[in-house]
Structures are given as structure tokens and as C-alpha cells.
Amino acid sequence: MNGDLDDREMLAAEYVLGTLAPADRARAEAERDRDPAFARLIDDWSAKLSPVAEAVGDVAPPPNAWTSIETALAGRLRSDAAGDTQPISVRPPLLQRLSFWRWSTAGALAVAACLALYIGGVQRLEPEPETRYVAVLNAGEARPAWVLTVDTRGRTLTIRPVADVAAPDKALELWMIRDADTPPRSLGLLDPTQPLALPIQAAVDDGRLQVAAFAVSLEPAGGSPTGLPTGPVLYQGDVYPIEE
């Protein structure tokens, strides 16, 4: 038994606990910023008390919460890249140019997440006579997560995971995006552990695949309740023809 804490340590401990009145809380924060030793006391107490979180029950955040975070982060990264001189735009001009809002007025933020999908995608519908297409779906700059091939002659699509894409308690839903004016169409749920082959009749016209891009979104178990992506787009990729 070491007896009672001294006043400074008690201030740090109660700051972490959260019981201080607002004025004392502000005082503790000022002290933390001024004095590294006090900041260490706060860190120590945080390490002691924070594991309580592990016992608090999970609550699923709303599906669009990730999109808000992603949008805020993208805005910040953009403004960092621009030397902090230009205002953060949550709605890039391109988004307005592609009459994108037609199919999703309610999910404005969810739409922003899909934006990247369109930027490279919509240009790529030149009438090439190939019969095989490939898309590599990834998340941003990361390594490939899914490899998708389409055989237009057999009108089949095959998609297989090439990375760990497990999403416990959630569903991974595959979408095809025809062009900017057409809502994404669900191709169903993916199994993160094995390849899936699907018929893809409607998307093939005159031997050519009428799809600009594919995307995989994170959805509640059972899939999107709305028929449009409701969760974050985890993986996406443009479609490229393969020369035969």
C-alpha cells in the first residue's frame, strides 16, 4: 500500500477518468501541453483505465459513418497537397458534371466514395472487339484484393480474392458500373475465401462488355438493404480489355 496519490497525479487520474469539472479539465489539458512529466502521468493513467473499453458492448455505427470519415480525410489530404491554401471541397466538380445525383440523392456521401470509381472508368467504353476483360479491384494504392475476369463469349464473370478480404459479420457486395448515368447494379455477395463465377448476360452487348468498372462495398449481413451501395466501397477497379 503506497497511500494516496499526490495532487498532481490525482489531477491526471481524474482527467483520464473524466470526472473533473470543465474548468479543471481545461487546466489539466493546459498542464499536459506545458509539462511532459504531467503528460506522462496522463498516459500512464490512460493505459491503466482504457482497457475498460474492451468490456463495453459494441454498437455498429451508421453505415455512412465511414464515408464521412473518408471524405473528411480525402479533403484534408487534398488540402495538405495544395499547401493548405485552398478550401476543402467535399463535392468535387467532376461529381456534379457526371449527373451522378440522379441515382442517389439520399446517399450523397456514399456517392462521394464511389467517385474514384468513375474518374478513370467512364472513358473506357471504346468499341474494341475483344472478348476478354480483366479488372483488378483494390483499395486506393494498396495491393490487389480481387481479380475479376469476364469472358464475353461465355458471358461469364469470374472473381477471386487474392488478399485477405475477410469482413466478419458483414457482407461484401459486388457491383458493376455501366456508366456515370446508370446506378450501380448488384451482382450479389462475395465469399472472401473462394472464387465465384456468375453469368453476366445483360452487361454484354454485341460482344463487348458494357461495364466501366466494378466495385465491392461493405454491407450489412445479407447485403445492401436498398439495392444501392450503402456501406463504404472497399475495393474498386476499372475494366480493361485483353488483346487476344
Binding site: G18, A53, E54, V56, G57, D58, V59, A60, P61, P62, A65, W66, I69, E70, L73, N138, A139, G140, E141, A142, A167, K170, L218, P232, L234
Partner: peptide
């Protein structure tokens, strides 16, 4: 700076953090 790792981190931890936060602030 890996944004896709950030997304996976979010997927793995957001329900826990939201549970902690909503309990304290009381409003979703």
C-alpha cells in the same frame, strides 16, 4: 499513410469505439 489499411482498421474497430462513445455522449 496506407489508406486501405485505415479502412480495414475502421471495419475491425468502429463498432467497439462507437459503443464506447455513444455510451458517454448518449446520442447517436
Amino acid at each position: 499513410g496506407d489508406q486501405s489499411a485505415f479502412q480495414r482498421l475502421y471495419a475491425a474497430t468502429s463498432a467497439k469505439l462507437f459503443g464506447v462513445i455513444v455510451r458517454i455522449v448518449g446520442r447517436r
